[in-house]
Nucleic acid binder design. Structure first.
Lengths: 199, 199
DNA sequence: TAAATTTGACAACAGTTGTTGCTTATCCAA
DNA sequence: TTGGATAAGCAACAACTGTTGTCAAATTTA
């Protein structure tokens, strides 16, 4: 994300861009119709009008396609909120928590019974959250003199944010994402407080 | 784990127990030989001497079998260290962190390139860690008067422990699990400190 | 502009998956 | 001990997966 895949993509052969867009659009359409578990590569390529062998030239399997698609969708959410170009403060942490909550809730509403879909989605989202937090922490100069590194703090924080958001998304009677973010902010701040000084 | 699957299993038809044991043993043997990704249900049932249709009567697919097997193996580690029958303190948290580290390291050494295997394993391990921590927290009476519930703290803590252990296991030059546990204990304690008072 | 390279389509192939209905073997309860 | 219930074996089936080598079309490069 911070090593922008978009720049790399701008150099791609137009056929590659067109083929992947066709595949991805059909993929997301069919997921909305029948869920990830029931989808087949055959389904996707028939809908996309792309040969199966071509699919395999771009993606090893449907899991890789999901990984790629979720990654792009979440990256778009982050960029839309300008989180990738702002700096660390508790308000931005709150916005990040809300973003993750809304994204997981959206996924959950379509594929709530599909654990595999959700665990695959998790990996992409958590990775991007980690990169973002680490990027923010690296820009801060007022670091505490202790053994907890930025990497450790970013790891604990990104996994905790994801876990809490995931728990929230699965609750039947849930508060708003913003209320929830306020509720859990002390936990997240406690993590980060091990490596930085809050004002 | 706290609703003991072992008791339920003792009531099972002996043929079911025997069949599952055969399947599981063959499964673990073949994983050691050629990794999870390359394994097929056909492989497992041929090795086990069990019909494929019988396999499907017990497990929907190889992912479910992995889930079950990892769950059993990790449960055994927890019970072996008596973590399920002891109470909350920082030493036991440290032992839990070490246990998770060693377990992930063991998995990683066999299937390091297999992300799917690792994300499936994660779900089982994290669940059990969550149940254990929540169980410990529920026994403590000295709870802080704040909005962070035991469930939230257990969630943040279990995800953070898993994330940190996973990061450690993937490092090429890593400290011992015990050294690592000491290093990250402040982070974990900071999470838990949001809902309980430390002595 | 033309040659070189890359991408995608195609058909064929071997292998695996997941299910089904029927039969046999094993276990349990009376 | 026996009959009923359950578990497992079996073969067949339709469908899908993943790969391969060849050819045509599209793009890039010189």
């Amino acid at each position: 994300m911070l090593s922008n895949p978009k720049i790399e993509e701008e150099k791609l052969d137009p056929r590659i861009k067109r083929t992947r867009k066709l595949i991805q659009r059909s993929f997301m359409d069919i997921i909305a119709e029948k869920g990830f578990q029931s989808i087949s590569v055959q389904d996707v390529t028939a809908r996309a009008g792309v040969n199966r062998a071509t699919f395999y030239a771009h993606f090893p399997d449907k899991y890789a396609l999901l990984d790629y698609s979720i990654g792009e969708a979440f990256r778009r959410e982050i960029e839309q909120r300008m989180l990738n170009v702002c700096e660390f403060n508790l308000d931005n942490i709150r916005v990040l928590i809300v973003t993750v909550c809304e994204f997981i809730k959206n996924i959950h509403s379509h594929n709530s019974a599909d654990v595999q879909y959700q665990t695959l989605a998790e990996t992409q989202i958590r990775s991007q959250v980690y990169e973002l937090i680490l990027h923010w922490l690296e820009k801060i100069k007022t670091i505490k003199n202790c053994t907890v590194s930025r990497e450790r703090a970013a790891t604990a924080t990104s996994w905790a944010i994801y876990g809490l958001a995931h728990q929230w998304a699965h609750e039947k009677q849930k508060s708003s994402a913003k209320t929830f973010a306020d509720e859990v902010l002390p936990l997240i701040a406690a993590n980060l407080g091990q490596t930085i000084k809050f004002p």
